[in-house]
Design a protein around this nucleic acid. Structure first.
Lengths: 139, 139
DNA sequence: CTAAGTGATATATATCTCTATATCACTAGG
DNA sequence: CCTAGTGATATAGAGATATATATCACTTAG
């Protein structure tokens, strides 16, 4: 888990951390039961205050992604939360709109966006460049 | 321009406004020279403080998207800013990562994401890009 | 000229975000 | 038992964000 934050980004620091962790869970780089870095350790790595990391962990715990055990550490939940379907779809469309708008503003067209999406897919899942026709996913 | 904001969203209010306006410019729903709602008017519509809208407009002006004229109003710039290529690509990949992660977390696969993207493309541009025989969505 | 609408500016207050620091409680390894 | 590492909690302060309110300057319509 290599996490990084940008203090001058659009999102607040703790939300940047939250997003990267949920993204890592989504992409399978963090699996149920995996241990996260302690909030102190991560705060040293990111050169930010421990409480900021703690806040990110607290929010993620409230959302059901991770659970903390006093004296032991913080772990990815065995059973991840299912989001409401309508909310989920609206969130996906929001993200899709954002991606396309950004691309259009840069002068790109839909095919170029699809290409980037496929590259990013390989990056996230760690799959080799070939888009295998079959798809043996577990989850 | 129908703008809306969510006070409990990830982004601060003024950044939500900024994003929706740049998205509208990108999608062609706002064109160079178009007049924006006055910050008072928009603040009434959104039920937020006028200064919050003002801040969004100020930032957008500093970025070169819009220009304000005292006593007259605020307008979309005739010549829109070009972003640095490396920054642009990184931003696109960030948005692509976000979209994919969200989809995976919801249990969707790449093909489903591509479908959503094409629907959103039609929504943004208003173009029936493809003479696809099936799937006439009307939102 | 007058009035209405616009942007520009200032003050004050409250909340959120981030930081720095310290202390306590629990767990695991030695 | 003792120590190191972990999470939990509390306080204080700085800066960003959002609000409410008021005033000024400029443009346009009448």
């Amino acid at each position: 888990m290599d996490i990084f934050v940008n203090p001058s980004g659009e999102l607040s620091l703790y939300r940047q951390i939250m997003r990267q962790i949920t993204d890592a869970i989504a992409g399978g780089r963090l699996k149920p039961g995996d241990k996260l870095a302690s909030h102190r350790e991560l705060s040293e790595h990111l050169v930010i205050a421990p409480l900021t990391v703690k806040k990110a962990y607290d929010e993620l715990e409230a959302l059901g992604y991770i659970e903390t055990q006093r004296g032991r550490g913080t772990f990815v939940c065995a059973r991840l939360p299912r989001t409401n379907r309508a909310d989920r779809d609206e969130q996906l469309r929001e993200n899709a709109r954002r991606l396309l708008s950004q691309a259009y503003l840069a002068g790109l067209q839909l095919p170029a966006v699809l290409k980037i999406l496929e590259e990013t897919d390989r990056e996230l899942t760690g799959n080799p460049t070939d888009p295998a026709p079959q798809d043996q996913k577990k989850r």
